Simulated assay, not measured.
Amino acid sequence: MPSKCLKNAIRLEFSPGALVHANLSGAAFSGECLWVAGDEACGIDRLRRLDPSGSELLRFGDGLSFPLSELLDLPGAADEEADLEGMAVADGYLWVVGSHGLKRKNAKSDRDDAENAKRLAKVTLDGNRRLLACLPIEIGDDGQPCLVREAKDGRRARRLKGDAESNLLTQALADDPHIGPYLGIPGKDNGFDIEGLVVDGNRLLLGLRGPVLRGWSALLEIALEAKGEQLRLAPLDGSGCLIRKHFLQLEGLGIRDLQFTGNDLYILAGPTMTLDGDIRVFKWPNAKSRLAANREPVRFEAALTELLSLPHGQGTNRAEALCELPPELASHTPSWLVLYDAPGPDRKDGEYTVFGDVLQKD
């Protein structure tokens, strides 16, 4: 399990025209290529491994952008941000999930009190935020993995049925006694906000940054099936249950990302609201087996292990993405990549290069 953080061990070089530049919120690997998402874009960038140029452990660049509008029929406009927060590679697909949350305008220092009062009262929902989709990965003519709308073997891109206002997940949660009341609250106000994603077969775990209820953070477990060109919620068991809730004791922190490593679930956790505070990594031992054996619709899990705390700045360097490095990229030493939203000057090299950390054992 990780117990130390190697700062700025990963160098990411983006091109000036890339969809994703700095505010990184999701990451996943396909071999030696790294997929990254940013929470202010409506697309995904692929970076390939390059030879190190300095003291970094790994360097990625030579990026290629994949606009979601070319892969899916989006519920919103092609240029509306999807606020992608979670990513996972499984069974030939790249899975992505948007925050699903509302957003509130912020006050600005150059506006007067009356105008800022109006801004702070305005709550909106971008049309692509309630997106949950799988995108086929196919090897292109250059020998590198690409995202396609339909693969040669028949696999195709699909998203959970819905529109710019809701989808099958939010509809199923509307009357939920724990989550339902928070669907109308902006994510950064402890409202509904998906930030973590892991995939195990047709089952997905969605980690919520919010709401955090009396210190308990929530994982939503769902199953998906393809119907025509869309994804639908499938029953988790014979009872017809569509959503299971797992409340985790993360000491008041919300879930920022998730990663299965073997049978264990690693959880990146941080403040649910916009503030500078603790960012920690927890482990849920034997989580995959325990989830597979569970049939209860709601359960509580307090037996988590805190592994380490990560650094953060004042308004900068907020850890948002956690994923396991492929063994061949880490000299077969178990390692995890951490990427940051709002990287500070200490994590940047010019306008288009940012650095991530590597977590390893001592």
Score class of each variant (00 low, 15 high):
residue 6 L to E: 15
residue 6 L to A: 14
residue 7 K to I: 10
residue 8 N to W: 08
residue 11 R to E: 12
residue 20 V to H: 02
residue 21 H to V: 12
residue 23 N to Y: 03
residue 24 L to N: 07
residue 24 L to Q: 13
residue 24 L to I: 15
residue 29 F to V: 07
residue 29 F to K: 04
residue 30 S to N: 11
residue 41 A to P: 01
residue 43 G to Q: 06
residue 46 R to L: 15
residue 46 R to E: 08
residue 49 R to F: 00
residue 52 P to F: 09
residue 56 E to W: 02
residue 58 L to G: 03
residue 59 R to V: 05
residue 65 S to P: 12
residue 65 S to Y: 09
residue 70 E to H: 12
residue 73 D to W: 00
residue 76 G to T: 10
residue 78 A to F: 02
residue 84 L to P: 08
residue 87 M to Q: 14
residue 91 D to M: 02
residue 94 L to R: 05
residue 97 V to N: 06
residue 98 G to S: 05
residue 99 S to A: 13
residue 101 G to Q: 06
residue 101 G to R: 04
residue 103 K to H: 06
residue 105 K to V: 00
residue 106 N to A: 15
residue 110 D to M: 00
residue 111 R to F: 11
residue 113 D to N: 02
residue 116 N to Q: 06
residue 116 N to S: 02
residue 118 K to T: 04
residue 119 R to V: 01
residue 120 L to Y: 00
residue 121 A to T: 03
residue 127 G to M: 09
residue 128 N to A: 12
residue 130 R to K: 15
residue 135 L to D: 11
residue 135 L to E: 10
residue 137 I to H: 09
residue 138 E to N: 03
residue 138 E to S: 08
residue 139 I to S: 12
residue 140 G to S: 01
residue 141 D to W: 00
residue 145 P to T: 02
residue 148 V to N: 09
residue 151 A to G: 10
residue 152 K to I: 12
residue 153 D to T: 10
residue 154 G to W: 04
residue 155 R to G: 07
residue 158 R to Q: 14
residue 160 L to Q: 02
residue 162 G to R: 01
residue 162 G to Q: 05
residue 163 D to F: 01
residue 167 N to F: 03
residue 169 L to P: 14
residue 170 T to N: 11
residue 170 T to Y: 08
residue 171 Q to R: 11
residue 176 D to L: 05
residue 176 D to T: 00
residue 177 P to Y: 03
residue 178 H to V: 14
residue 181 P to D: 06
residue 182 Y to V: 00
residue 183 L to D: 11
residue 183 L to P: 08
residue 185 I to H: 05
residue 185 I to C: 10
residue 189 D to Q: 15
residue 189 D to M: 15
residue 189 D to S: 15
residue 191 G to H: 08
residue 192 F to R: 13
residue 196 G to E: 06
residue 196 G to F: 03
residue 196 G to Q: 06
residue 198 V to C: 10
residue 198 V to W: 01
residue 199 V to D: 03
residue 200 D to A: 15
residue 200 D to K: 10
residue 204 L to F: 11
residue 205 L to I: 08
residue 207 G to H: 03
residue 210 G to M: 13
residue 210 G to F: 14
residue 221 E to Y: 10
residue 225 E to I: 07
residue 229 E to T: 14
residue 234 A to W: 04
residue 236 L to P: 12
residue 237 D to H: 08
residue 239 S to P: 01
residue 241 C to I: 02
residue 242 L to W: 12
residue 243 I to L: 11
residue 244 R to K: 14
residue 248 L to A: 10
residue 248 L to E: 11
residue 252 G to W: 02
residue 253 L to T: 09
residue 256 R to V: 05
residue 257 D to W: 09
residue 260 F to S: 03
residue 260 F to D: 01
residue 264 D to Q: 06
residue 268 L to W: 04
residue 271 P to H: 07
residue 277 G to M: 09
residue 280 R to F: 00
residue 282 F to V: 03
residue 284 W to T: 01
residue 284 W to H: 04
residue 290 R to C: 02
residue 293 A to K: 15
residue 295 R to K: 15
residue 295 R to E: 13
residue 296 E to W: 04
residue 298 V to S: 07
residue 300 F to Q: 09
residue 301 E to I: 15
residue 301 E to C: 15
residue 302 A to E: 15
residue 308 L to S: 11
residue 309 S to R: 14
residue 314 Q to L: 11
residue 315 G to C: 04
residue 325 L to A: 06
residue 330 A to L: 11
residue 335 S to P: 07
residue 337 L to R: 04
residue 339 L to G: 09
residue 341 D to V: 02
residue 345 P to W: 10
residue 355 F to G: 06
residue 357 D to Y: 10
residue 358 V to Q: 02
